[in-house]
């Protein structure tokens, strides 16, 4: 076993355990905290793969941004003694089916993917200059258009949030 495999095993175990805890915890803030661990471990996985940029973005956006936002909104709304009700069987079964379907799809993809036999040297890093150029290039594999489209989505989300917040005041 190499150290990379060891780290992979640790990250994978953290992701699996805390994912299960996230969905089974009945206290909402604990669930959010476990989600944070899942996201940080995913970031660690990216670091392991030397996708440094992706890992940092994962940490900034998901762990630092979205989880903080979730926790912040939970703080505003929830009470310490509060526990979520146990979900009814009617809700559990569809959830299991959906989760099972997703897992099956993933496993199928992994099994069918023709992995190359020799190990690609992991020492090369993805240069951030390449990422930066791709991100704002308007050529064939450029992401300028999707980037702008996403920002429109964000704008829409922001407008929606403002409207929701305004409505509640009345």
């Amino acid at each position: 076993m190499t150290t990379n495999q060891l780290m992979f095993a640790i990250f994978a175990a953290v992701i699996i355990i805390f994912s299960i805890l996230t969905v089974t915890s009945r206290r909402i803030l604990r669930a959010a905290t476990f989600l944070l661990f899942v996201l940080v471990a995913t970031g660690g996985m990216y670091f392991l793969l030397r996708f440094n940029f992706l890992a940092a973005i994962q940490l900034t956006l998901y762990a630092g941004g979205i989880v903080v936002l979730i926790i912040f909104s939970i703080l505003l709304t929830s009470h310490i003694g509060e526990k979520l009700e146990a979900p009814s069987v009617k809700k559990i079964i569809p959830a299991f089916i959906a989760a099972g379907f997703g897992a099956a799809l993933c496993i199928l993809t992994i099994v069918q993917h023709p992995f190359p036999q020799e190990v690609i040297s992991s020492s090369e890093r993805t240069d951030i200059r390449v990422i930066a150029k791709a991100l704002i290039s308007t050529e064939k594999f450029g992401y300028a258009l999707p980037f702008e489209v996403i920002s429109i989505l964000l704008l829409a989300a922001m407008v929606g949030a403002i409207i929701l917040a305004k409505k509640r005041k009345d």
């Binding site: 505003l76 709304t77 929830s78 009470h79 003694g81 509060e82």
Partner: peptide, 12 residues
């Protein structure tokens, strides 16, 4: 019995 306090929204 422990009284389950209603959810409080401290904004409101």
């Amino acid at each position: 019995e422990v009284i389950n306090l209603p959810v409080k929204n401290i904004e409101e």
